[in-house]
Design a protein around this nucleic acid. Structure first.
Lengths: 257, 257
DNA sequence: CGAATATTTGACCGATGTCAAGGACCGTGG
DNA sequence: CCACGGTCCTTGACATCGGTCAAATATTCG
């Protein structure tokens, strides 16, 4: 597992670690700004940086992690596996998302997290989580915001898997991911490329791979997406939203830690 | 919509509202205790009490609620509805659960909440939520705990709907609800009675009513449950857990606000 | 080139949905 | 007390969506 701590090589500049200075999330307009005090605290809360290759398992179900992470760059996903191997992808993670919070708040993780692309993660010490609430109530509030937002995404996934047809589900998922990619800065103005295989789509939607393939072809033939080697290109996000009968939340400014 | 504010009739006793003194959640061993300062804050945060009849819609999707609630007694459920009427039940609420947090943190509710039985709810003002974080960081942490716990339940629901068979799903749901009933004090030592119809089960599991009925009969014939008029009696929780290949979390002491 | 992983396709199967109808139970009004 | 309508539960026949199996075809990576 390729791990790097960038902490030791960081230099100070105006009292702020260069790491936070060049933080890709802070530089993204979709995220809110820190007050100087908050930034200073987050800087001290931060323990270093973790680099994961594509395919790396970052957190494992059943483990007790000493760390919390905020995604800085790259795509990943959270999943669970049943004893006989059936896998369910619960959600995807993008820059600004926090992972490992469940492991910090309960005894152990109830799901695993894996990188879809190379990822950079900001590492925090879970022991100091309570002091975050004590010293910066606003950041504590933001954590609750982030957890509620995750909850609301899971609600959307649930109604999709439970009540939408295969075609609607697929359209929903791709529109949803495209939206997340844009908001988190993973995608620019261009057509989005989602770094997922059809197996990921299947395991997210609760479908078999074969049927997922046939369903995606329908979206292709409608001109909504293109399927590339190991990923999907979104041609018409709005068309996907219509096919799914779903709309993204219109949240413009998001907190992060 | 039958509404009662019990606030005006509450009397003080040792500086604590009788309402908090007799709070059924505080009296339940499965929940943690407040420090005197916390109790005093919660008492002041509290705005009154809301009584809902069975079948009442407590919060509606798309609305902007001025309140937050903690469930004191009774069962309810959260759900979403698609335009054409398809309904998905997202989760059930029991005493100790907070509802309306999403509406407090975002602009509007993305789901509705309905009472399954008569419910008593403790009402809080959403405007003062930030001051909870400021004055009692521990309570802020607890809110994050609660939100994370909800997330973890939704994760379980997702893998059930996505990857378990109809029989496994049904067994999972009933074991899960029985567990929640016990932990929240809705059920005593006796056999649990779950106040749900088969339509609720169907809309939770993403199944049709007809198939749900046939699936539940299998659980009946295995001696795991009995189906009564408008509800379900759990005869063998452990048998259900085995049929579902699922285990409840072993959390013993839960926070609440 | 060969192995491993992804994607694609066709044939067939089975779990689950839909339709339809009947029965049980409840609350209400006469 | 009975009649009535409204839910809820139950059941059978049939339809279909999506799963399984199997095999072919890329594509990547050594």
């Amino acid at each position: 597992m390729p791990e790097e701590r960038a902490g030791q090589s960081e230099r100070l500049k105006n009292g702020i670690h260069t790491a936070c200075l060049v933080c890709p999330i802070r530089l993204n307009d979709h995220f809110r700004e820190f007050s100087p005090g908050e930034l200073e605290f987050v800087r001290s809360f931060r323990k270093g940086e973790f680099h994961a290759d594509a395919g790396t398992t970052i957190l494992v179900e059943g483990s007790h992690s000493a760390h919390l992470y905020t995604v800085l760059t790259g795509w990943g996903f959270r999943y669970k596996i049943l004893e006989d191997g059936r896998r369910q992808i619960l959600n995807y993670v993008v820059p600004g998302d926090m992972i490992g919070l469940q492991g910090a708040v309960f005894d152990e993780m109830a799901h695993s997290v894996e990188a879809l692309t190379p990822m950079r993660l900001c590492v925090f010490e879970r022991d100091r989580l309570l002091s975050l609430f004590e010293k910066h109530p606003g950041l504590g509030y933001d954590l609750t915001w982030i957890a509620s937002r995750e909850e609301s995404m899971l609600d959307d996934h649930l109604i999709s898997i439970g009540r939408r047809t295969a075609l609607e589900r697929a359209a929903y998922l791709l529109a949803f991911l495209d939206d997340r990619g844009r908001v988190s800065g993973l995608t620019g103005e261009d057509k989005a490329y989602l770094p997922i295989t059809q197996a990921h789509v299947a395991d997210t939607l609760g479908l078999s791979i074969v049927h997922t393939n046939k369903t995606l072809k329908k979206l292709v033939s409608r001109g909504l997406i293109r399927w590339l080697d190991r990923g999907c290109e979104i041609l018409d996000n709005f068309g996907l939203q219509e096919a799914a009968n779903w709309k993204p939340d219109g949240i413009t400014r998001r907190p992060f830690i």
